[in-house]
Write a protein that binds this DNA or RNA. Sequence first.
RNA 1: GGAGAGGUGGCAGAGUGGUUUAAUGCAGCUGUCUUGAAAACAGCCGUGGCGCAAGUCACCGGGAGUUCGAAUCUCCCCCUCUCCGCCA
Length: 422
Amino acid sequence: MLSIQFIRENTERVKRDLALRNTTAPIERILQLDEQRRDLLQQVEQLRSKRNTVSKAIGAAKESGDREQRIMEMRLVGDEIDRLDAVLKKVETELQAHLYEVPNILDPSVPPGFDEDSNVVVETCGEKPRFGFQPKPHWELAEVNGGIDFARGVKMAGSRFFVLNGPTARLHRALTQWMLNSHIDAGFEERYVPYMLSEASFYAAGQLPKFRENLYRDAEEDYYFIPTAEVALVNLYRDEILPAESLPKRLVAHTPCFRREKVSAGREVRGIKRVFQFEKVEMFVYCEPEQSEAELEQLILRARSIPEALNLPYRVVQLCSGDIGFNATKTFDIEIYAPGVDEWIEVSSVSNCLDFQARRANIRYRPALDAPIRRPHMLNGSGLAPGRTLIAVMENYQQEDGSIVVPAVLQPYMGMDVIPAS
RNA sequence: GGAGAGGUGGCAGAGUGGUUUAAUGCAGCUGUCUUGAAAACAGCCGUGGCGCAAGUCACCGGGAGUUCGAAUCUCCCCCUCUCCGCCA
């Protein structure tokens, strides 16, 4: 969240960014509540101070003549404190709830725009493959080699679930392992994290209260299923003060992701692009505020290294103001071209969230001994989503008979160089 | 799921109604001494809110209550540990 001080001092900026995001938040109400809060706080604290002083005196002079008189007096003061406190608490609760609803400010470089149509392609790399035949979409390739079983996924769980078979399952796992290893080799430290977290953790990560309808949850216990490892990686150091020498902290985790997406039937139903459960290798960085711009660049390079090494055509897209996520100030997507569906598929989203999540999660660091505490900047980026990368590999590496050549970097993980047609 | 014991500052650990601004120790920081270090000695050493400031308020797992006054008493909840049960 944004600090109330920031909103107070940069009201116009905050309102402008809300408009650019094509969303709303009750900024005027927040400012009003803020003023009420400070006013009430001063009244209550003055009364508390008085009560503390007198109570101490009562304790010190037990046999004083006006003892009863003073106790009576303080009883009234206590009643008034209770009354004001109740009002204060109500104001603070509402203020806090509204502050949770305000998205991050936008980086000045974010292009304005209503929706994804206004996103800006920053760079396009690699060549689209040329085929001497009509390339098939991955679901048709799967029919040839039996790699994806849609029918049984639907039977077991429902629509938008699937099963991977044999070499295709192994290719999916190979992608995951290879991605993870390549980030570890680049200096990231692996974490294995819970896939279900408490409601408090989801508030801290900025998932709640806004995106409740997109989450799967335990019906009886306080568990929500993570829609991304980011939620866990934000909460790792919740309520902690990190030592300066631990920054920058570059982490990577592989988790399944669960997303309850309200997609209309008939739209993007084919294939495995849009599903309710998928794998993701997630990179995450904690760093000093001065470093976050540079760390963002590094994260983008890390994400790009994956399609580079797989020799897949991809492009880097900067999200416009209307498409950027709630927590982020600046986001770049990586999209890989998939010739079968003839589409650029989003496989990564890399964001700088500044101190937005650090404030929600109450994470701080001490720059030096005796130096004042600060909030770290936090960044996240997929590196990448193996399921969608699988689509790109299948469609780009397909041969006329429906067999699929295994990219060189994955062959050690596969023990084969071609997935045969049948 | 059942029974028992606990939850106090970075750590250890006192504190069962009123100079507690939480004792003391360890760790850490600064200084004196020393060629340097150690030791010794002295001082410092939590977080957050409000306020121009002086200052003030809150925080002893979380919440509610009793009281002029709560780390301390009462109730509810959460978590940890030990034993039992179940289990990959």
